[in-house]
Design a protein around this nucleic acid. Structure first.
Lengths: 247, 247
DNA sequence: TGATACATATCATCCTACAACTTAACTCGA
DNA sequence: TCGAGTTAAGTTGTAGGATGATATGTATCA
């Protein structure tokens, strides 16, 4: 709490910057659940901004369920379980272990998504998935166009599950991963472009056409594991395909 | 866009209400990606609030990545894929089909969580899970205390996966479900209290102790399906446990 | 036709003022 | 002395006005 805006860094509007700063204080444990934030006036002075800016920042944080404000009392940090939304800290993804974990979560979601899509897809879903696949095949190198087509491919599969929450969660996770990789490239332009592997996508598509949930799941799992490795992330050992204890 | 705040309903601060209204317009497709919102001044007049209130509302929406504001131009709706966070509309969960879908997603996440926890848990995890279990067992009826203990049980299992994203996602989904059920009870006080089924929890715990991922997954899946049914939600047919095609 | 200047529209920030709510302190009566 | 009621102080919630910054469109000039 000794910071001024000059030390906050990053771009964007002042409210966004104040909110980001406070958010980091909360996530890092500097401000524990139950802690009362400084008053709006104090924050205003501390950061050298108007009270309106502080209020806008606080509005953001309360919409996220990170804090609650009580009129006449102050603003208090809430427990993470009370959050009204899920966010992923882009900075945290610079740590490759966190990237691993996010890929693991993605693998869980996408493997199930593919299996459900294989069961529930209609012709219109297959058409959309094929269109994304064709778009991917038309690219010679793994560039933004390919990345967009790849994301679209995954999103269309998730759409075919008929479960909008699955679609939302997968879209979100894929987008966060994409952003992280994108920013890594901006920082390090020599970062190698990753080659597209359309064969893996084709196998997923074929399993969907065949309506084979197990094949779809396996193909998708292999694809996500492969995609992770291609960006330098090694997923934790595959599970239960070796245990053979499952019924 | 013909609404006034009187028609917005719900409680809370004016910015929150304006943001919620706009958010619903966006989610419902009334405001498509690329659409330009009315100016701040127009929204201020339309809703009969000050421009500050409108700005705070917009700050919330832009923090979510639902809109982007360009100085001198206006505020524009962004595509859902650009969202910086995941939210679940509590109103949408009043539709039982959406509740089904959310439970399905929960089942996907929690089954995997249990399996990973069975592989990765340490003694400290088991202790925490047991503590939550004991707390649940001490309750004679399914009340808030039991619900909290149940949520804690699930969160501790997710923590044992060692993947904070899994933990975050599961916590979030469980909390949204809990809130939805809680509000349903406020609206309809005659809604039956649901009995706690500690036996299912014990089975999960035992599989964790035994370090048996398959058993943990199966027990968790059965528990989630049972929990859903106990609140009147029937999950889509179980998948792949009958296909037997998996390797 | 392209570049430059100017006007207009709109967001971003700041400031002031008052309303509404909460909490602590004070006063008064039993 | 204790409890209830009142008042004062502190803090958030809202409103309104002003100025700065940015983007876009239009007019003018070379």
């Amino acid at each position: 709490m000794k910071q001024r805006l000059a030390a906050i860094g990053t771009v964007e509007t002042l409210p966004h910057r104040v909110a980001a700063f406070l958010s980091r204080e909360i996530e890092s444990g500097e401000l524990n659940p139950g802690t009362r934030l400084p008053t709006e006036q104090e924050l205003s002075e501390k950061f050298g901004v108007s009270r309106n800016v502080v209020r806008e920042a606080i509005a953001q944080l309360r919409a996220d369920g990170m804090i609650e404000a009580r009129q006449g009392v102050g603003a208090f940090v809430l427990a993470p379980e009370q959050r009204a939304s899920i966010r992923i800290d882009g900075e945290a993804l610079k740590d490759s272990e966190n990237m691993e974990r996010l890929f693991e979560l993605r693998c869980i979601l996408e493997a199930e998504s593919a299996a459900l899509a294989a069961e529930r897809r209609g012709q219109e879903h297959l058409d959309a998935i094929k269109a994304a696949l064709d778009r991917m095949s038309g690219e010679e190198r793994w560039e933004e166009g390919s990345i967009d087509a790849d994301l679209l491919f995954h999103r269309e599969i998730a759409r075919a599950t008929g479960n909008s929450y699955i679609h939302t969660f997968i879209s979100f996770v894929c987008e966060q991963i994409r952003r992280s990789i994108h920013y890594a490239r901006l920082t390090n332009p020599l970062h190698d472009l990753v080659e597209v592997n359309v064969g893996e996508h084709v196998r997923i598509y074929e399993a969907l056409v065949a309506g084979d949930p197990s094949a779809a799941e396996a193909a998708m799992r292999a694809h996500i594991i492969g995609a992770a490795e291609r960006v330098g992330v090694k997923l934790p050992a595959a599970r239960r395909k070796q245990s053979g204890k499952g019924k």
